[in-house]
């Protein structure tokens, strides 16, 4: 009897939490239709445990190494988002992404349309227009800064059509005040080889979820294991740092 009331209370609290989210203006995605993004344990950080596809995800990339890691992480997410055959747009003023490398993250590079424009305003304009297209599942834009008005416009476009927006923001100095759904910082970590094999292993990143609306920010270590994400256990991590110190080249 006691057990049953406990269960009842838990359900009640969960329902209340969902109601609060609704009142805060967050539209829940039906968990039956929403696909898992493949981030494993990290997905608990998102509201309702579902990766918010109807949102603007902002990635802070101050140095080229970070932007390469962010490119990799986004590409891996795109592979899952693009599973239904949808396309993607990659807008930039100074693109360095190498299309031939995208296959490593299971993305078909020919399904990505690159727009290499010269002005920042054009990037934002194209992004807003592209977010309204049904043929795309995601739009990636590389810009230096994003202000409140611009981010709100993008957010409105995203909520209407459900095309996910990714923004790679280079500028750190400008005051951050936008309404991105999530803010990430991805930095590379030393790769790990089993059995002390020479060479470089699968790419490994430190994922910092700095902000997520209605979710719990956190930090994880993630590896792209060729075809899926693997969240690294702290135990193995210790080992890997040990190996890294031990290993010599040659």
């Amino acid at each position: 009897m006691q057990y049953k009331t406990m269960e009842g209370k838990k359900e009640l609290i969960e329902k209340l939490q969902k109601d609060i989210l609704l009142w805060q203006g967050y539209k829940p995605q039906e968990s039956c239709t929403a696909e898992r993004i493949g981030l494993g344990i990290m997905e608990t950080a998102f509201p309702n445990g579902v990766f918010p596809t109807r949102g603007i995800h902002e990635f802070i990339t101050a140095i080229p190494e970070h932007s390469a890691a962010s490119d990799g992480f986004i590409s891996a997410l795109l592979a899952i988002l693009m599973k239904n055959g949808a396309g993607c747009v990659w807008i930039s003023t100074s693109r360095k992404l190498f299309p031939a490398s995208l296959r490593t993250f299971n993305v078909d590079p020919e399904r990505i349309i690159f727009m290499d424009v010269s002005k920042e305003q054009d990037v934002l304009w194209i992004m807003e227009e592209a977010l309204k297209c049904d043929g795309f599942c995601a739009v990636v834009a590389e810009i230096t800064s994003l202000n409140l008005t611009e981010s709100r416009r993008l957010q409105l476009a995203v909520e209407k059509n459900g095309v996910t927006g990714f923004i790679l923001r280079k500028d750190l100095r400008k005051a951050v005040s936008n309404i991105a759904t999530a803010r990430w910082r991805i930095s590379p970590l030393p790769s790990y080889n089993e059995d002390e094999m020479p060479g470089i292993g699968f790419p490994r990143w430190n994922i910092e979820l700095l902000k997520v609306r209605n979710g719990n920010p956190g930090s994880w270590e993630l590896e792209w294991a060729g075809d899926r994400f693997v969240v690294i256990d702290q135990e193995i991590k210790k080992d890997s740092s040990y190996y890294a110190e031990q290993r010599q080249i040659g």
Binding site: V117, I126, C133, F136
Partner: peptide, 25 residues
């Protein structure tokens, strides 16, 4: 959804009209 979607073609036309066709790759 996919690149054959009419909305995609329309976006490309709009971009080509405003910014120029050379930006699309």
């Amino acid at each position: 959804p996919g690149l054959n979607d009419r909305s995609v073609i329309r976006l490309l036309d709009k971009v080509a009209g405003k910014v120029g066709a050379h930006v699309i790759h």
